[in-house]
Design a binder for these strands. Sequence first.
DNA 1: CTGAAAGCGCTTACAG
DNA 2: CTGAAAGCGCTTACAG
Lengths: 342, 342
Amino acid sequence: MVAKTSTLQDVARVAGVSTATVSRTLSNPDLVSESTRTRVAKAVQSTGYRINRAARNLRTRRAHSALVVLPDLANPFFSEILEGISRHLSGRGYSMLIASTNQVHESGERLIDYLDNARADGMIILDGGLSDDVVASLENTPQAGRVLFACEWIEGTGFASVRSENRRGTRTAVRYLHDLGHRKIGHVTGPSGNVLMHARHDAFVEEIRALNLELKPEWIIPGDFSLNAGCRAATSWLEMDDRPEAVFCASDQIALGFIAELTRNGVTVPDDVSVMGFDDIDFAEQFVPALTSIHQDRLLLGETAAKMLMARIDSPEDPAGDHAAVLPVSLVVRDSTARPKP
Amino acid sequence: MVAKTSTLQDVARVAGVSTATVSRTLSNPDLVSESTRTRVAKAVQSTGYRINRAARNLRTRRAHSALVVLPDLANPFFSEILEGISRHLSGRGYSMLIASTNQVHESGERLIDYLDNARADGMIILDGGLSDDVVASLENTPQAGRVLFACEWIEGTGFASVRSENRRGTRTAVRYLHDLGHRKIGHVTGPSGNVLMHARHDAFVEEIRALNLELKPEWIIPGDFSLNAGCRAATSWLEMDDRPEAVFCASDQIALGFIAELTRNGVTVPDDVSVMGFDDIDFAEQFVPALTSIHQDRLLLGETAAKMLMARIDSPEDPAGDHAAVLPVSLVVRDSTARPKP
DNA sequence: CTGAAAGCGCTTACAG
DNA sequence: CTGAAAGCGCTTACAG
């Protein structure tokens, strides 16, 4: 149909007005008389005009896009957060760019380049494990206000952030296991150095103390957030002389790997040991046994992050809304936890 | 450090050369004398110059980014494909934009706008379920050569595509179940109308016929690719008078839901029924029982798609490489399949 | 309400 | 090997 893409000039010529008027009609129709408006509309129709974003971006000094940074694209934990972010962004006419920290690193690119290069107006970072120099580059840029952390964060920095109630969720989990009647409760942690690992580990210990429960050092099993870490933790558990009768895992993936490995070794969950996770990923409900977990609203987390970022892009010095948001979590009881056997 | 972003002009001034020379030095160092090169390099250093992509994009008529279109961002099936795509793209200095078909639809945007707006130089579509008018708009644009389908495709169109060996994988699965000794084999299908559903369903029926096996109509259980579809299929299976003793599911998610629901009903896999999936997602290995499946190399699929797209962006009329690629799949035997009980 | 004109920051024939 | 100049396609004070 349209052989060549037409420009504002073409539309102006057809409509018999200036390019300025066409531009106004498109971005600010109120400034233009109704007759002009309809004339331009027709010209846009007949020419099949589409705005050239590169030109607009250059002129307005806006990229009209935001970058989302993940530690690892292959991790399904993030997909629903992306959905939430994308939903808000696309509603505002923004595009969503995606990059993973390992790839940015590999390709020799720097994260800050996305901002400096005018490729993105802001970024949402889902990785609290950035190296010190990357963090420094982010802090020392005039655009630091347009950098936001979600899920994870970096202690001691001033970046805006969104996260879930990690501490409260953890304490709720421990209390629930305690309420069931368990007195010997263990914990499989996230990766050492990770902020979520710390938040959940510390809250775990606090609640254990608050409940006056025994806590043997070996009941804290170091891991990372993966299925494999759960499998390894199960091996540790099996080798213990004095085993915890309930285990709170720092992620659902850990919990599922833990249960799978136990099942392979003839241990039954929850009859022999109660197991809980954190996150409430889709599979938690379908696993056998279905996993008791702490639910994170990942969609809301993504939407909130996008909303906060847009506020900061719109007015960097005085953004509307919060600088930090902490989203509620909830206990979801399923079949992987039970009262201890008498 | 750098108060204001500096431009090519600033660098030129500091280096005492023209902007043309700076530009050449940066993009085509060979065209420039060594002394100039070092002088410019120093000036770039001292000014903290970063190229403005919007300006370059406008001038070169390239967005230097590609769009990846998913049916649904929340589906973890795609995450590893994204990793593969992103890996190749970032190596070429391209950014990756992500959009989901439902959101594009909701926000009133059209897919083709990404191309028309000069936001993306090409797109990789992972959704064969686009509506007819969307497909038509894609076909009728001069940029149709820069649209590529991956995983799924649309029958009767000329778009380039990458996919896995769906038919061979399916026939391999059926033959494997037959080799184990099963003679009554059922199939839970993907969503009706989906190209993958058709490919796998048709190949299933063909192989059953080739092996001269009985196939009762009710042994073909309609589903979609989800866990829930698997649960529903299990209910159907439980209600049958004459049950298939082995079931090939069109996706791993189906297979896992199927097994979970059977387990809840006291049926043991593989003792009472053998179950297979397709995809070999991460969870397949960790499920109890670990799932026998057909492995798709999703990372390679993503990389191949990106490579093909880049070839088409580089030379639209005569792209290097294939117009269609079909990637090998492989059988992964685990614990969800076994010989029939005597 | 509308237009002429400048300019966003690059790249690239063209000429030397 | 290098520079002057045009131009990519928009937006936006400024003036009327």
